[in-house]
Design a protein around this nucleic acid. Structure first.
Length: 814
RNA sequence: GCCCGGAUGGCGAAAUCGGCAGACGCAGCGGACUUAAAAUCCGCUGUCCGAGAGGACGUGUGGGUUCGAGUCCCACUCCGGGCACCA
């Protein structure tokens, strides 16, 4: 497919029409190349292609073929993830070089995908595990560093004392190491590298607005919640005696007169200074390693008090395991009367409850008798000079008051955190930084990139980062002073690779830059991105962040990487998603062996619409194979010379066949253009086949050939091998992909008559075949005359008649 | 605990804008062809009552809106996925 040229002049109007329909999207100037961009998520090089993959890739492949048949230039490339953790695990377990493991798995996977006939642009293939890709990962890292978007800070990691290794969350099982089930995982503070995603929090949120038309609502919702912007107030409570401020963040400063304690996160620095460091640390460790479900809300009193700056009230300072150090300020005020969780906590620990908000139409709750918190807005009571104000007004005035008095201010808080990119692993892009005793942290200069992994490393799975054990790698000269220095031994999260890999597709061989801006511009932003919904918040936020950073670097001039997003459902088997980890995969190889890849992928598409989770069952593959065989036999039996001109229908069977044909084309085309419910497209093609089968002997030669030809074309995106074969049997030249997508003729598709339902009081009592388009009035008259209806209406008064042309008539009668 | 989904026959599902529930396929049953089997072709197939005509019921549960609800609203149940306990 590569290098195939299409005629832009033919294509441009179609392109425009397609996107203008919703008024959402224009391609800009007419000089732009016509384009369409389909993209898959990076497949994991596990070496195993399972039916979950096949289903997912089939979606993109069918779309790519359809768009090619329509005459678009399609960029449909394939890329490979280095997939750090599994590769390294395999290396440890089987004593294999992770590079060799990854590459051989990629090769195996590629063979399988090719055998399925997927139409990827293999000449644009990229692998994020190759040195050239490291170079550009590192290049981006350095640009971020220069702009203060990459920084180092102390952050907690899971640590197994037995392996002396950092563990991923995935490797922590019930609070213990996956390999040492008796060894509790510890929390260890380490210097780690971060990307400042929060610098773009506001923009990442605001820009979701622009994606409204092209992205699934549920993904937008998840991202909105993930970024979690909330406006509120920061207030300093003062520790009694020392006067040290405890800054809390609250969205409900109007309830602050009802605050009856202050609760600190276990990891809050003040916990140490209040003399509770020991208890705080053990609580922090527990909170970090336990699943939220298993974590009971607990807390302890520090024995100290803080002063509420609004009311002057003295409230106890507690530490609670449910308070997050990473959100807000790491400390909260508890208002039990007006917050469910605070209510529960304070009841349990016998802390005072003090209602201060009265519902707009209601009474102030009684602290002694209330059994749930009142969390709504209302009117303030017992709130000093703010009593009598409504919540909305009070929140504004009280924030202003705090700012004037210098103990707080209105503030915006995000749930989104900076992105920790450090990994203590071997198999990833090395972070291009050097630590010099004299100069401090110094970046590796561009011309020294890429920093490559040392080739001979023993991977044992225990001990510090493998790179730390490697003196040749670790020891280097300081790029600034030339003195002795040590390389950063952390490698990058593989999410860094996947945040910009798609740009590289536009220019995969470039050795002077990640990609050339002008080349990227002709393809980007991505028109259609396809991926699993599991990426809704991580990958799909990171890649949006990267695009914004690139824009600010001046590399590109657009804001969002993806215009339209499609999230496919998961394949569920035995109640869990199909994955190699869970060992519940169905291998396509057996199916391919028995029925061929066309049957396998078409069955996967037919089983359920692609955005929906699919419960996998083998039953039914047989049926798809029968269908394709039936089509094959039918074409073989009826193939004849191509008609020179548009065939004229010569009898009613011809007309019926052509009608069905054009209805099917319309159906399949709309499905491709809108929602990709290929199961119904395929059902429509089956219906057409059944219809042709039933009328075969009565059809005139020209109509038969026309129907066979278009049936073949419509089958092509779903069953490419069969379609090519049929195309040849029909005596056509070239590839079916070059033949063009058939157009539906609305006049031929039109039905003359339609069957409507006649209801009496909402129950269907009769059906009637009438000319299509019969308007209201005559419609009801016809319905009223139906025999059964006459009988039912006899002796009753018709109160109301509802007429829906071409659908139904409903008589409301008593 | 929080966020996001889902629930329709024996099974996978369809119903795209509130308008005939169950398209298409699987499984099953009956028939044709066959010495027989396979393959193929034709027909039936939501549940209950009825000999039949026909009737009643029916889209996880309970309410509501409407002439009319699988579809909209409220309250729940169960299942799946994600998570950083989100103040």
């Amino acid at each position: 497919m590569a290098g195939k040229q299409y005629k832009p002049a033919q294509i441009e109007p179609k392109w425009q029409r397609y996107w203008d329909e919703n008024g959402v999207y224009r391609t800009g100037s007419g000089t732009d190349r016509p384009k369409y961009y389909v993209l898959e998520m990076l497949p994991y090089p596990s070496g195993v292609l399972h039916m979950g993959h096949v289903r997912n890739y089939s979606i993109g492949d069918a779309l790519a073929r359809y768009k090619r048949m329509q005459g678009f230039n399609v960029l449909h490339p394939m890329g490979w993830d280095s997939f750090g953790l599994p590769a390294e695990n395999a290396a440890i377990k089987h004593n294999r070089d992770p590079r060799e493991w990854t590459r051989s798995n990629i090769a195996a996977m590629k063979r399988q995908l090719r055998s399925f006939g997927f139409s990827y642009d293999w000449d644009r293939e990229i692998s994020s595990c190759e040195p050239e890709y490291y170079r550009w990962n590192q290049w981006f890292f350095l640009r971020m560093w220069e702009r203060g978007l990459a920084y180092r800070k102390k952050s907690a990691v899971n640590w197994c004392p037995e392996c002396a290794t950092v563990l991923a969350n995935e490797q922590v099982v019930a609070g213990c190491c996956w390999r040492h089930e008796q060894t509790p995982v510890e929390q260890q503070e380490r210097e780690q590298w971060f990307f400042k995603t929060t610098a773009y929090a506001d923009e990442l949120l605001a820009a979701l607005q622009e994606l409204q038309d092209g992205w699934p609502e549920r993904v937008l919702t998840m991202q909105r919640n993930w970024i979690g912007r909330s406006t509120g107030t920061e207030v300093d409570f003062a520790v009694e005696e020392s006067g040290e401020p405890i800054r809390v963040f609250t969205t409900r400063v109007d309830t602050i007169f009802g605050a009856t304690c202050v609760i600190l996160a276990p990891a809050h620095p003040l916990v140490e200074r209040l003399g509770c460091g020991e208890r705080g640390r053990s609580m922090a460790a527990e909170a970090a390693t336990k699943a939220p479900d298993d974590l009971e809300k607990r807390g302890f009193f520090t024995g100290r008090y803080a002063i509420n700056p609004y009311s002057g009230a003295k409230v106890p300072i507690w530490v609670g395991n449910f308070v997050l150090m990473t959100y807000g300020t790491g400390a909260i005020m508890a208002v039990p009367a007006h917050d469910d969780r605070d209510f529960e906590f304070c009841r349990k620990h016998g802390i005072d409850i003090l209602p201060v908000i009265r519902p707009e139409a209601g009474q102030l709750a009684d602290a002694n008798t209330m059994d749930t918190a009142y969390c709504g807005y209302g009117v303030l009571e017992n709130s000093g000079r703010f009593s009598g104000l409504t919540s909305a007004v009070a929140i504004r005035r009280m924030s202003e008051h705090a700012e004037r008095e210098g103990f707080g201010k209105a503030a915006v808080s995000f749930r989104l955190r900076d992105w920790g990119v450090s990994r203590q692993r071997y198999w990833g892009t090395p972070i291009p930084m050097v630590r010099c005793a004299v100069c401090g942290v110094v970046p590796v200069p561009d011309e020294k990139l890429p920093v490559l992994l040392p080739p001979d490393v023993k991977l044992t799975g225990s001990g510090e980062s493998p790179l730390r054990e490697c003196p040749d790698f670790l020891h280097t000269d300081c790029p600034r002073c030339g003195g002795e220095a040590e390389r950063e031994s952390d490698t990058m999260d593989t999410f860094v690779d996947s945040s910009w890999y798609f740009y590289r597709y536009a220019d995969p061989k470039n050795s002077a830059a990640p990609y050339e801006s002008a080349t990227a511009r002709s393809w980007f932003p991505i028109d259609q991105y396809i991926g699993g919904v599991e990426h809704a918040v991580l990958h799909l936020i990171y890649c949006r962040f990267f695009t914004k950073v690139m824009r600010d670097l001046g590399v590109i001039d657009w804001d969002e990487p993806v215009r339209r997003l499609f999230t496919q459902g998961m394949v569920i088997r035995n109640g869990r998603k199909m994955s190699k980890n869970l060992g519940n995969v169905v291998s396509p190889e057996d199916l391919v062996e028995k029925y061929g890849s066309d049957t396998a992928r078409m069955f996967a598409l037919f089983a359920a619409p692609p955005d929906r989770d699919l419960d996998w069952q083998d039953e039914g593959v047989e049926g798809m194979w029968r269908f394709l065989s039936r089509v094959h036999r039918f074409v073989a039996a009826n193939a004849g010379p191509a008609a020179a001109a548009r065939p004229r229908p010569s009898n009613s069977d011809d007309r019926a066949a052509l009608r069905k044909l054009h209805q099917t084309i319309a159906k399949v085309t709309t499905d491709f253009e809108t929602r990709w419910h290929f199961n119904t497209s395929i059902a429509a093609i089956m219906e057409l086949t059944n219809e042709l089968h039933a009328r075969a002997s009565a059809l005139s030669e020209g109509v038969m050939q026309e129907c066979l030809q278009r049936l073949t074309l419509m089958l092509s995106p779903f069953a490419p091998h069969l379609a090519e074969e049929l195309w040849r049997q029909l005596g056509r030249e070239g590839s079916v992909l070059d033949a063009g997508w058939p157009e539906s003729d609305a006049r031929l598709a039109k039905e003359d008559t339609v069957e409507i339902a006649i209801q009496v009081n909402g129950k269907v009592r009769d059906r009637l075949t009438i000319p299509k388009g019969l308007p209201r009035g005559p419609l009801a008259d016809r319905a009223r005359q139906a025999e059964r209806i006459r009988a039912l209406l006899a002796g009753k008064t018709v109160r109301k008649v509802i007429e829906v042309p071409d659908r139904l008539v409903n008589f409301v009668a008593f």
